[in-house]
Design a protein around this nucleic acid. Structure first.
Length: 754
DNA sequence: GATAATCCGGTTTTT
DNA sequence: CCGGATTATC
């Protein structure tokens, strides 16, 4: 490989001497490193792409470059992403560069591409090509059945845990036969592998797959010596392979890529080891760390010019991540011309979570007044439950917000029920769907009936619907159940016969109405019933966008996302994980306390490695911001209604002092150091054990309470809420009607007699 | 077969 | 403290 560019850090503006005067559009305005990443088409290439260094741009330019210079036809390119969103974005951007040819690219998520291949060769994996893809919910139910059949005590051994184990095995590309005895663990007295085996058999008999199988079956087929032609064909086809977010790949994905890339060896992986935050779901940072070893002769390109954040933010992020070991090493530098340092990162300590929320929202209002769009502001938290405090404060303040990554459309109960009806109609053999809706709405087909169906199905080795059909022809069932079940099956058949005749959106509505499902929610008096009915309407309407009901179901199983409306300006509230790949002008990072962030359990579960991943998460958070970063921590926090006092996160100390403006709560502490010292007297880093919590439940003594209790009617004073009257007393919990702040529940340790 | 009582757990998430 | 999930009861 010729080496036209100097990759060393100290030559940011190296210029290619033989560059054409006018570069083609897809190479326009790329910096030298980006351009090298695009133009080094032959051989393995690893692009280490720091946050905000134009990764997507490089990927799309590379695709365009290969197609436009006729190195290969679009269908000779395989481009893999993790999320549908990333895939969509990439396709749009490539399309802008190369036009309709982009439709011919093999571009999609690992799973979508896996399905595409697997449908073609399903037989080789023991499936029919119209197999169904189960989601987590179905998987768990199936696994429970398997465990029941295997007489495993589901109390001692939760199905969820087994599901996790199996998923991790699949992440590593292991079929039941490949799991070694040493790995079996002690789950269900060492029977985990046996259960895994049984689960796979059940899946096959249902003509179904879980997500892990989409790749695992591909691997099995690729490696099958009987069918070497299949792999050979794909290897021949994919002359160029591109992989996005390579640091997030698991072993199965790695193996899949390696097999496909073996012939042409033109594989380009783009990733950032410093942004690897998914090891807990099977991602292997090792994949990126050992790329050069796995693909000898690889070209490594580092993208370090950041076009997103201010120098101050970059300095803070770089210094923070420098505390990690085992990095490939990259330093972000400002990419813009003549960059101003920008505002320092603000770090603020506050008294408690409520005060933190108030401060954050005040600052948001200030930024908004200063002209920042609410869409460009984000609050990024470590864990989902932390959003609540901010939501409450945002509601009282009247600032519109959206919580991203909450419950998703297709995961809602009513949607899943409706889909189950459609599945039964499209795929009569879909037992899991049948079970889900056979008695929804309640029609008197309970456990007894279902059990009879199961017994017959198992005895004859047939599906549940087929078994049900036989049962109603017999006298096994009570007359009532028999009539109802017969009626239901007739309904299924009728709807199925309408598939070809009626528009499927309309048919969907018919199914929901005739099955009584719509009626069930109409009779429901809970406040959310109306919303559920609307969701159902939306579902039926969405279906008309597709060619067929089956096509729609396929789409849904792979694309479990809700399209958000973008009509009003709203601030964004989400987890740090959810924020990866996004950027905002202003980012708030609350809850930087030991035990919360880094999260205690991350450290407990994986020690130093876990801590490093938490630090990467912090790095991801900081690098989301273009203009300003606000970090905050609270001395006291109520978790599960117990007061807990925390130390500031170690990550606070790891930010460079010269890029940080530190503020501490006025009147409480002179500064962070004093504050830390003050808390040190009552220190408990991280979460307390249950027992400690019981004994240490008092918050720090801001105002020492009298030893004897309070009684209703007492006039009291509270540090934050001012004066008020005690309403009720419940142990050390008081309900107080404050003159200014209204009625609040507080602990006696926070108040004193007025 | 459906409703009330009780127990447990409570990080991060895509496909 | 809250929500869900399983269990006890009618």
């Amino acid at each position: 490989m010729s080496d036209p560019f100097d990759l060393s850090d100290d030559e940011p503006h190296a210029v290619r001497s033989n560059a054409p005067a006018v570069p083609p559009p897809w190479l326009d305005r790329l910096n030298p490193e980006q351009r090298q990443a695009v133009e080094t088409t032959e051989g393995p290439v690893l692009v280490l792409s720091g946050a905000g260094t134009g990764k997507t741009r490089v990927l799309t330019a590379r695709l365009a470059h290969i197609v436009m210079t006729r190195l290969a036809k679009p269908w000779n390119l395989l481009a893999v992403t993790f999320t549908n969103k990333a895939a969509r974005e990439m396709r749009e951007r490539v399309s802008a560069l190369i036009g309709p040819a982009s439709e011919q690219l093999w571009l999609g998520t690992f799973h979508a591409l896996g399905v595409r291949m697997l449908r073609r060769h399903a037989r080789l994996a023991g499936l029919e090509s119209n197999f169904t893809i189960l989601d987590t919910d179905d998987q768990l139910r199936l696994l429970k059945q398997v465990m029941e059949t295997g007489r495993v005590d589901s109390k001692r051994w939760p199905a969820q845990a087994l599901m996790g184990t199996i998923q991790r095995w699949k992440d590593r590309g292991l079929t039941p036969a490949q799991v070694t005895d040493g790995e079996a663990g002690d789950f269900a007295a060492g029977r985990a592998v046996e259960l895994y085996q049984a689960y796979q058999e059940r899946l096959r008999s249902l003509n179904a797959c879980d997500f892990g199988d989409l790749l695992l079956h591909c691997l099995t087929i690729f490696k099958d010596p009987q069918h070497i032609d299949v792999l050979a064909e794909y290897q021949r086809q994919f002359r160029y392979i591109l992989v996005d977010e390579y640091q997030d790949t698991n072993i199965a994905q790695y193996l899949w890529l390696r097999l496909l890339a073996q012939k042409h060896r033109n594989i380009c992986c783009v990733g950032d080891d410093d942004q690897s935050i998914y090891s807990w779901r099977g991602a292997e940072v090792g994949n990126i760390l050992k790329f050069e070893h796995d693909f000898p002769g690889a070209t490594v390109v580092r993208l370090e010019a950041n076009y997103r954040s201010t120098p101050a933010i970059l300095a803070a992020a770089s210094e923070l991540i420098r505390h990690n070991e085992g990095r490939l090493g990259k330093t972000l530098r400002p990419g813009g011309v003549d960059p101003q340092p920008g505002e320092p990162v603000v770090v603020r300590g506050l008294w408690d979570g409520e005060e933190e929320a108030r401060w954050v929202v005040e600052e948001i209002e200030a930024r908004h007044r200063a002209g920042t769009s609410l869409n460009e502001i984000a609050i990024l938290v470590r864990a989902g439950f932390q959003t609540r405090e901010f939501e409450e404060r945002l509601i009282t303040t009247g600032i519109p917000y959206k919580v991203i990554g909450g419950l998703r459309f297709y995961e809602r109960q009513e949607i899943r029920d409706a889909l189950a009806y459609f599945r039964v109609v499209v795929q009569p053999a879909d037992d899991l769907a049948f079970e889900r809706i056979v008695n929804v709405p309640k029609r008197g087909l309970g456990d007894a009936t279902l059990q009879a169906v199961h017994v017959l199905a198992r005895a004859q080795g047939i599906g549940l619907v087929a078994a049900a059909r036989q049962l109603i022809a017999s006298d096994e069932l009570k007359p009532r159940a028999r009539t109802t079940l017969a009626g239901l099956l007739i309904d299924f058949d009728r709807w199925r016969s309408l598939l070809a005749a009626v528009g499927h959106g309309e048919l969907a509505q018919t199914i929901l109405d005739e099955s009584g499902y719509t009626g069930m929610w109409q009779n429901e008096k809970t406040p959310d019933a109306q919303g559920r009915l609307e969701n159902l309407k939306e579902l039926a309407a969405a279906m008309d966008e597709f060619d067929s009901m089956a096509g729609f179901l396929e789409h849904v199983s792979l694309v479990m996302e809700n399209d958000e409306r973008t009509d009003v300006e709203r601030i964004n509230v989400m987890t740090l994980h959810g924020a990866k790949g996004l950027e905002f002008d202003v980012v708030f990072l609350p809850g930087w306390e030991e035990g919360v962030f880094p999260h205690q359990r991350a450290i407990e579960a994986s020690g130093a490695q876990g801590l490093e991943e938490e630090r990467r998460l912090a790095y991801v958070g900081v690098t989301r911001a273009r203009q300003r970063v606000y970090v905050s921590y609270a001395a006291n926090r109520r978790i599960y209604n117990q007061w807990q006092n925390n130390l500031p996160s170690r990550f606070v100390e790891e930010l460079p002092a010269e890029m940080v403006e530190r503020l501490a709560e006025k009147g409480l502490f002179g500064g962070v150091t004093e504050a830390a010292a003050a808390w040190g007297t009552n220190w408990n880093s991280g979460y307390l054990t249950q027992r400690q919590r019981r004994t240490d439940r008092e918050a720090p003594d801001a105002a020492a309470p009298p030893d004897d209790g309070y009684a209703p009617g007492d006039r009291v004073f509270h540090q934050k809420f001012g004066y008020g009257l005690v309403q009720t007393v419940d142990g050390n919990k008081l309900e107080i009607s404050f003159d200014k702040a209204g009625v609040k529940k507080v602990l006696d340790s926070f108040i004193s007699m007025a």
